[in-house]
Design a protein around this nucleic acid. Structure first.
Lengths: 182, 182
DNA sequence: GTCTATACGAAGATAGAC
DNA sequence: GTCTATCTTCGTATAGAC
């Protein structure tokens, strides 16, 4: 975090950077520690010096997006249901665009998410987000909110197909149609 | 297909049946051939006698749902855009409910779908379905249709959470809000 | 901090007996 | 058709030198 180049953290950072790209391009499961090490220009052993294992690498990749999601949730505290919903629609769309690559990965690892306790908070925050988006405890509305999240997550796949602006516009319209129908 | 019990096919059928359940419960990747064999009450070698490999088992699991999707697409041929859209909304909802377990699996394997050429047709039919649902070649409408499919696929996860009727109702409402807003 | 070398286990797949 | 035994490959992780 210092202004001086933190040499100690450079390798670690390179590992996370390349792991993210590989997870995105080939999928999490299809990426081995050897793949990550080669891409980062170091050895497998070095990767395992910096991270406890592959799950820890994954956690590091997801961490920034998870942190921003937590911020989103915290910021909605104290708002009215209606305010919070509007806020969540706007901010979640924004979050999706900013982290579209990471979200692509997130989908890929959903089936094994419980093997990575480091990111349990992300799952919890995802559920919290459902409640914000629903703006009601009605079972149907909650289901629609979940539907909306899944739809939005799905759109983040295949980054090449859409520009950021197209994605933002699409998600905004879809969320509003689903959650605030005329 | 004969009315008489086809003894020759019984093991094969058991394998598919248990593979489906395991893929659903633990995820495709977390399920080994050994797991499938044990559940089906036979050996790994027997599984590989009936199927060329794990991808072939997966293909057999997905095949019935894929076949019905192809039927859906074929039936829409010759309809007007508007007719086809209404038809697709109704039939796709129905398909999702009938095959909710299989759809759960489908999501899980999307990242490795291209390793299974046997089910390339399912992917092609999924794209065709997007076009039916969109009812327009507009880029935004196509995006919303894809959003809708992703949302619906996501709802099929965690079968225990919702009854079939709840799922049907939710999907119907969501698709109409997204694709035919008032 | 980073490397090479290696241990260990699991998974997919094959060979050959029955 | 089904089995046991075996092969090979690969991924995770550790040991120990530099």
């Amino acid at each position: 975090m210092a202004a001086t180049t933190p040499v100690r953290e450079r390798t670690r950072h390179e590992i996370v950077r390349h792991a993210m790209r590989l997870f995105q391009d080939r999928g999490h499961n299809a990426t081995s520690l050897q793949d990550i090490a080669s891409a980062a220009g170091c050895s497998k052993a070095t990767v395992l010096y910096h991270f406890a294992g592959k799950p820890a690498v994954l956690a590091a990749v997801l961490e920034p997006a998870g942190a921003d999601l937590a911020v989103l949730n915290a910021a909605a505290d104290g708002m009215s249901r209606t305010e919070a919903q509007e806020f969540a629609i706007r901010e979640f769309t924004d979050l999706a665009v900013r982290y579209r690559g990471v979200i692509d990965i997130l989908q890929d690892v959903l089936p094994v998410i419980d093997e990575v306790p480091e990111i349990a908070q992300v799952v919890a925050d995802g559920i919290k987000l459902t409640e914000l988006l629903a703006a009601s405890d009605d079972r149907l509305e909650q289901g629609l909110a979940k539907f909306a999240i899944n739809g939005l997550l799905g759109e983040c796949r295949h980054s090449g197909e859409r520009t950021d602006d197209e994605l933002r516009n699409l998600c905004d319209i879809a969320l509003r149609r689903l959650l605030k129908p005329a």
